[in-house]
Design a protein around this nucleic acid. Structure first.
Lengths: 113, 113
DNA sequence: CGCTCTATATAGGAACGCAAGATACTTGCC
DNA sequence: GGCAAGTATCTTGCGTTCCTATATAGAGCG
């Protein structure tokens, strides 16, 4: 049981991944670093969440992947890139998140429910 | 498949329930109505999500329940009430949500990732 | 009694996120 | 060559959440 995932974090992975791929293709671990950097450590997830999520996104054709050799020496990297469908999905998920965020605001202050 | 639950909605149920119980005890269906009213329909969930969630909360001793006859005639109602632990959990979950919300803000605007 | 409204409850299934471990390629050093 | 260390992808097994659909039951009414 140890340290269960905070409920609030649920459902944030796909949007975070898609957003980090918006301006450039990235490989797996690079996405993790980028999410951590962009949120100042406020959001972070691990490989065990990342790779299943990426495979999900590929299956839905929101991203495509290609192998590429590492610049810096080391294991080859698999770069992930947004498709047009992926960009549409990203826009949709942004709106979804905005709507939920706005609705939840009501519950953040004492007595507003 | 039809209309899958938006990812963004995940993890919002417990906080919504706890918040609606903050100022007064309520019974099951009343909680649903209250969540819908408070969010202007922006958040809503069904009995199949509500009752398992309530039982979870009881098990954690964040709420307690008691039966009461219906005023309006009809089936008896089970009222749920926050415990002190429940109030602490509510405060904690509010902070969790705030932190995730703030972190996710980064991903809502083009190029901010 | 049968019907409807209100209300609580559960079973079954799908999806998510995590910890832990498995696999594999590259470099550097002996 | 052999071997460890570093980088990177991927899989397995588990627990949790949420939903659809269904079951159960009391109260009032004709």
């Amino acid at each position: 049981m140890a340290d269960p995932t905070p409920d609030a974090k649920r459902g944030t992975v796909d949007l975070a991944i898609l957003a980090t791929l918006e301006l450039q293709a990235r490989y797996g671990l690079e996405i993790l670093e980028e999410v951590q950097r962009a949120t100042g450590g406020g959001l972070a997830f691990k490989e065990g969440s990342l790779y299943p999520a990426l495979h999900r996104l590929v299956k839905q054709r929101w991203v495509v992947s290609r192998w590429e050799d590492s610049d810096a020496g080391g294991a080859p990297r698999k770069y992930y890139e947004l498709t047009d469908d992926g960009r549409r999905a990203l826009a949709r998920k942004r709106e979804e998140w905005r709507a939920v965020r706005d609705a939840m605001e009501v519950f953040l202050f004492v007595g507003n429910a």
